[in-house]
């Protein structure tokens, strides 16, 4: 008889603990937004839960989602990557051009190699030349931008038909692109949870000095995080090329993937300073942005209003996290 209230109390404590975890909080917010959206759309006379709508949400979020998952790695390691948008444009072009001449597989290989190389450069500039990540990746972004805009002024290349199916095909209500995103997210989640590299990304982002004193080769960790982040951007470039049927020099910047991916990561509760957070939160952050988008589309709200709401949501979310972190410090 005595054990019961205790168990209840324990469970209550656990629920509160979960609410304090940003990754859980973002899903709660996502759920709330879904409900509110459903009510609003229904009142408006529309239908919220349609296959079309669900597919739309997934389609919209896949590319940003893949980039944001990669960005999560860079941010967790205490860095950040402003070069992803231009890299996406570059890789979409590389993919399309390579496919025009050759097959699908070599094209994908080339794209991944180019991405890895860019990530390597980012990482080396940050660790070996000791340039602040902001400036380093901004500089690399400019370099890519120059190359891309010098060689292309519009869409180029041709993507094979079979590859285009990646962009629009779906299995039941699930688009292939969403599966790709899920695959990337699970892979990175697994990396963070189960590999030494994942552990060390958290350690370096949490406290570089502690990591170093514990024998972690911090430079390698930062470089690896950047390589993986860039590969994710490359995958997003592939996806967008499949969707467009060609490469485009502006597809990355039009989507605002650089700042928006950072925003999605932070919205998901990952600390901008690194060392705290994870992929689950990022996925939630991206979905939240996509659902908001979808609701506004259904309500036919002006697209500029969406930007305003986005900005407010991001700032408010981070303010809430900051407040929680402060409370935690004072009660700990």
């Amino acid at each position: 008889m005595k054990a019961r209230p205790q168990a209840v109390q324990l469970r209550g404590g656990r629920v509160i603990a979960h609410l304090r975890d940003p990754a859980q909080a973002i899903y709660l917010a996502l759920f709330a937004v879904l409900i509110i959206g459903w009510v609003l759309v229904t009142i408006d006379g529309g239908q919220f839960v349609t296959t079309e709508n669900i597919v739309g949400i997934q389609q919209r979020s896949a590319a940003l989602g893949i980039v944001a998952v990669g960005q999560t790695l860079a941010i967790l390691a205490g860095s950040l990557d402003l070069s992803v948008a231009y890299l996406i444009s570059l890789t979409s072009l590389v993919a399309a051009e390579a496919m025009t001449g050759g097959g699908m597989v070599p094209a994908i290989a080339v794209v991944l190699a180019v991405s890895a190389l860019v990530g390597m450069v980012n990482g080396l500039v940050i660790t070996k030349l000791k340039v602040h990540a902001f400036i380093a990746t901004l500089g690399v972004a400019l370099i890519i931008k120059g190359v891309v805009e010098h060689r292309y002024d519009g869409p180029a290349g041709d993507v094979t038909d079979s590859f285009q199916r990646l962009g629009y095909d779906r299995i039941g209500p699930v688009p292939v692109s969403a599966l790709l995103w899920a695959g990337v997210a699970v892979a990175v989640w697994f990396l963070l949870r189960r590999t030494r590299l994942g552990y060390r990304i958290y350690a370096v982002g949490g406290d570089e000095e502690v990591a170093r004193l514990s024998g972690v080769r911090t430079d390698r960790v930062v470089i690896s995080a950047h390589v993986l982040c860039s590969i994710c951007a490359g995958i997003a470039g592939l996806l967008l090329a499949a969707r467009l049927g060609a490469g485009s020099p502006t597809v990355g910047t039009d989507g605002g993937y650089d700042l928006e991916s950072i925003a999605a990561v932070v919205l998901g509760g990952t600390a901008l300073a690194g060392g705290r957070g994870g992929v689950a939160g990022t996925v939630g952050g991206v979905l939240l942005l996509a659902v908001l988008d979808s609701i506004f589309n259904q309500l036919e709200v002006n697209s500029f209003f969406k930007d305003v709401v986005r900005g407010v949501v991001i700032v408010v979310a981070v303010a809430v996290y900051a407040r929680r972190a402060r409370e935690r410090r004072t009660t700990a």
């Binding site: 189960r194 590999t195 030494r196 994942g198 552990y199 060390r200 958290y202 350690a203 949490g206 406290d207 502690v210 990591a211 514990s214 024998g215 972690v216 060392g275 705290r276």
Partner: peptide, 22 residues
């Protein structure tokens, strides 16, 4: 590292692996 678990701190930099995984 305050944000990591006790075990992760204890084995930081020397995480035991099995088949390549921690």
């Amino acid at each position: 590292l305050p944000e990591r678990s006790v075990a992760e701190n204890v084995f930081l930099g020397r995480e035991p692996v099995r088949r390549g995984l921690v």
